[in-house]
Design a protein around this nucleic acid. Structure first.
Lengths: 149, 149
DNA sequence: GCACAATAGTTGCATATACAAATAATGGAA
DNA sequence: TTCCATTATTTGTATATGCAACTATTGTGC
């Protein structure tokens, strides 16, 4: 009762809303990585897909969706662009005619290697921005979400 | 040295990258709010602008940018849409012919009031998803970013 | 084997987002 | 006061994002 804060609808939302904050964070952090990756012609979103694909060797779009929590249509079009850029190879899945198999092309592989220093540079900046405690707590919070969703 | 983890480029990035995680979080959280707000024809992004405007009474686009860390061009077009929807009134700034003054219309005001329960519902879900510790640590991390940027 | 639900993807549509370049007005320095 | 850097905003272009509706295929229950 001691702290007299305004309590109109906009004030409450402004003070507490998780969505605004998460979205601000996403914009700020994405910008850091995008800037670092720009010389490579690569965007953060695309790098994420590249990484998932590289780790799994072969992926289906649906797998990318579930790992990155993206809409199928978003993945579909991102993959199109990356295929057009020559970074991904997409072929039909033998076992399921509905599905596709996505792999890195050699060009995609090389790109990822070349992107490594840029990513590291961005990663360092992001850590500085969040602070050590911020980083660990953030990752922890997100681990919850990943498991739940 | 005890834990033998893979250390190829994609593995390192997948294991540590802050950007992927923040972006996943943003997508998942945004979805919660978007779903709650959908019946009102309002999106999370627009709600954020509505709230900033409501709190300040009169805002310039540049002020919205700096508070929400959005690009000016993004704000410009979002405001356009919201003006077209009849939620915002935009007039020239008397003191600076370059600038605009943005206010809520009565319709915008009412919308925000009507959105309040939906927001609260989403806010509760978001909190459940993150857990109490997740929420506090997240807000803390973001406060750093806000101050820094 | 057939009807039908579930699954995998694509496409139409609309918003969101940012960079770069352009426009326009302000403010300050010479 | 004139020139110029700065500031406020818009517009062109491209990617990112998600919902809804659609196609195609698989698997399932009968």
């Amino acid at each position: 009762m001691s702290s007299q804060k305004t309590k109109t609808t906009p004030d409450i939302i402004a003070r507490e809303c998780i969505a605004v904050r998460v979205r601000i964070l996403s914009r700020v952090i994405t910008k850091i990585y995008d800037e670092a990756l720009r010389p490579l012609g690569l965007k953060t979103s695309q790098m994420n897909i590249l990484v998932v694909t590289a780790r799994l060797g072969v992926v289906r779009p649906a797998e990318i969706c579930s790992r990155l929590k993206m809409d199928m249509s978003t993945v579909s079009r991102n993959v199109d662009r990356m295929k057009a850029a020559g970074w991904l190879k997409v072929v039909a899945d033998e076992e399921d005619a509905r599905a596709r198999q996505i792999r890195l092309s050699r060009k995609g592989s090389k790109l990822l290697e070349k992107a490594s220093p840029a990513w590291e540079e961005a990663q360092i900046k992001a850590k500085e921005l969040l602070g050590p405690a911020g980083v660990t707590s953030l990752l922890e919070a997100i681990e919850n979400v990943r498991r739940a969703a």
